[in-house]
Amino acid sequence: MTNPALSRRRLIATATAFIAAPAVARATTLAAPRHNISSFRAQNWQDHFDRLGVPTIVADTTSRALHYWNADGGDYRIYPTSVPLTEELTKRGYTKIVRKRVGPDWTPTASMIERNPELRHMPPGPGNPLGTHALYLSWPAYIIHGTHDTRKIGRKSSDGCIGLYNEMIADLFKIAPIGTQVRII
């Protein structure tokens, strides 16, 4: 006569092995992941620019990450970002950094005032939506900037700009000179 507990144990062990086998097989046969748990996708500057020669930024609005390479490609950094709220607010294409400012003041655009008539100019400080540093792009009113509201990073939360944590925009501000080529994708 067979032992019912032993049969159940064998059944559970066999079922577990069959369930786990595909996951184990996938884990041992797949190459490195194309993105990490934060959903950052790997980017290569060669997919966006013919050559470097100057520092380069690719801001990926889908994975909400900003990628930076120095002029020779030897220094690569990635930063989590906030991105525009809607597709209508998202401008994509090629631009460059034309101006930099520590302690930027903020003036709402006409479309922002249309949506919220209470918005007013803000000097630098804790309530300023541009945070501690700003990299102005050749497109009017589009900026890569910091934010005092850390809840915005990793989210669709801006009116068109790319936002970074204040400590990360300070780092990028130091290494990205005027003339840095930028692509927003």
Rank of each mutant, 00 (worst) to 15 (best):
A25W: 11
I143Q: 01
R151C: 00
F18R: 11
T28G: 06
I184W: 03
I169K: 01
G154N: 03
I175M: 04
D72S: 12
I144V: 08
T29G: 01
G163C: 01
R151Y: 07
G146S: 03
P117W: 09
I169H: 04
T86P: 11
I144G: 00
G160Y: 05
P108F: 10
C161T: 05
I144Q: 02
T132F: 12
W106V: 04
R115W: 03
A17K: 09
R8M: 14
K96Y: 06
S7P: 01
P117L: 10
R120V: 10
T95Q: 03
F173G: 02
S39T: 09
H121R: 14
D75G: 01
E88Y: 11
R151W: 09
Q46I: 01
P140H: 06
Q181F: 00
I169E: 05
A59K: 14
S111C: 07
S7Y: 13
E114T: 12
E88H: 13
R101N: 02
L52G: 15
D47T: 05
H67C: 00
E114P: 05
A27G: 12
G154W: 01
K100F: 02
K156G: 02
A71Q: 11
R92G: 05
L119W: 08
N166I: 04
T86Q: 11
A31I: 09
A13R: 09
P126A: 13
H48R: 01
T16K: 03
S111H: 10
A71L: 05
P124E: 06
P177K: 03
F49G: 02
D75K: 09
Y79P: 12
R10D: 14
W139Q: 09
R92I: 07
H133Y: 12
V54Q: 13
P129K: 10
A27S: 13
W106Y: 10
L66Y: 04
T180S: 02
L52Q: 10
W69E: 00
I162P: 07
T14K: 12
F173H: 12
D60G: 09
P4S: 12
A59E: 14
N116V: 04
T147Y: 04
N166T: 05
E87T: 10
G131V: 12
H148M: 05
G154M: 00
R34P: 00
I57W: 09
D105Q: 06
R155M: 07
